[in-house]
Design a protein around this nucleic acid. Structure first.
Lengths: 251, 251
DNA sequence: TATAGCTATCGAACAATTTCAAACATTGAC
DNA sequence: GTCAATGTTTGAAATTGTTCGATAGCTATA
């Protein structure tokens, strides 16, 4: 493979996954890690990516311009990536999974490598990410009314459609977790996510540590009813102990 | 093989593959690598390709234009635009409209200027076009299984969802119209479109003149049950007379 | 919180490999 | 034979891989 071809591939990967490690790239492109480092440094010098310890991520301004609808995307990219990778390990071949809206869950489906999955989502960004994933998944969109701000489909249509389905695993993101309450900014979105969880045999909530011990307006689910809280290492031991009373912590 | 012939072949390969190595070309064209290098340098001097270490790649401006070129050819074809504009005039304030998949219908929603509409579609490209339209429409997506090739959502989920709705006007595109049959390439897609029409008080089929008197594999609706065929001026008088037996022609 | 120890990552230096172009030899058409 | 195109040789340049000591980041322990 030509060098410029490799550089282009790297850029492509960074764009879709927001973050990559040196090892991942070295394995995928079948070159040594040193070569990848040199490539990343070159791309960094050309101001195409942001070089960080262990890998690279999208430039924050690229994140902003790419999708103007959310500034959330530009922060905590690495943390979200960690959480997403952890969540990937909980998915197995032939699963039918529900994936709610949220940037972390976009990363989840973008980084999935398990084969033979049925992915159901009510989020357009998540759908797009799954569509761009190299593996050829059975992809189902839950339609409904469109919320421009989050890119999610919600309302009675979405809810009714979800109620006709059953999932082996379900993942939702949150804006905050306070005590045993999962909270979000929008009532309708929370309701739809709640139904997605209800219809899932195993229920996971995905939240980097910045979401813990914070509360948003609408409570939409009880932490005691979910099977796992997927977060990253940044979680404070005190909080971990607190939440582990109610559910399993994956970090 | 003549030199000029070889140069042409190389250009062709670069165009289709974006990247090519010296070795690949040397083996394929059965000449020495040195000859290929000389060829590549010549093409580079003529500004036809970008020479890079180990091979060659498309000029960066060719890469940029390449994608949008295909789409522009598709989308901005004059005939489709005419048809789309004509269809726009059949939509009025406060309508609830169903819009099926198809490039002409993408143009339709992109050019809509009527206010206070509810737009329902099972096509992702149509949805995206409507989303980008400046007017703030009530936008509803019908979810379901995703067909990568056309960007449409189909199957039982989509069908059931459509069956719960009622539209004042419905628009579908076709691959071909033969006698009184609307035909399309995919059975499921046709079924879903058919239901969209069934649920519409006024039913329109949209087809530039190239679609008339052509047939695709699956028949999904009867022309005698639609209220209008929207086409452009290129239609042959003979065909117009033929189809006007079955429905109203808008051109 | 601070510290020590561990591991992964890093870049510099060097070696191995690949690619390059110049110079020259060869081929084939006229 | 002449000339243009092509092949071959060869040393230089570019790229990549490997080794290794330094450093960053994390974990466990006090």
């Amino acid at each position: 493979m030509l060098k410029s071809e490799r550089l282009k591939t790297i850029l492509q990967v960074v764009k879709t996954q927001k973050f990559v490690t040196v090892d991942e790239l070295a394995q995928a492109l079948k070159v040594s890690d040193m070569t990848i480092r040199r490539d990343l440094n070159e791309l960094h010098k050309a101001n195409k990516i942001l070089r960080i310890h262990g890998g690279a991520q999208l430039l924050s301004d690229q994140i902003r311009t790419e999708k103007s609808y959310q500034q959330k995307r530009e922060i905590h990219s690495k943390e979200k990536y960690e959480v997403a990778k952890r969540a990937c390990n909980l998915i197995h071949e032939n699963d039918s999974i529900y994936v709610g809206p949220g940037t972390t869950l976009e990363l989840l489906v973008a980084n999935l490598k398990v084969k033979h999955l049925r992915i159901v989502t009510n989020s357009l960004p998540v759908f797009e990410a799954a569509k761009d994933n190299m593996n050829d998944y059975d992809l189902i969109m839950v339609g409904g009314s469109y919320r421009r701000i989050s890119g999610a489909f919600v309302g009675a249509l979405a809810n009714n459609e979800l109620k006709t389905m059953s999932f082996s695993v379900g993942f939702v993101g949150v804006n905050g977790i306070k005590d045993t309450s999962l909270t979000t900014a929008n009532l309708e979105e929370g309701q739809t996510e709640g139904i997605g969880l209800d219809r899932s045999q195993i229920k996971f909530v995905v939240a980097d540590y910045t979401k813990l011990d914070h509360s948003d307006f609408h409570q939409f689910y009880d932490l005691r009813n979910v099977d796992g809280l997927i977060t990253n290492h940044g979680i404070e031991p005190e909080l971990e102990k607190h939440y582990s009373q109610f559910t399993t912590i994956y970090k």
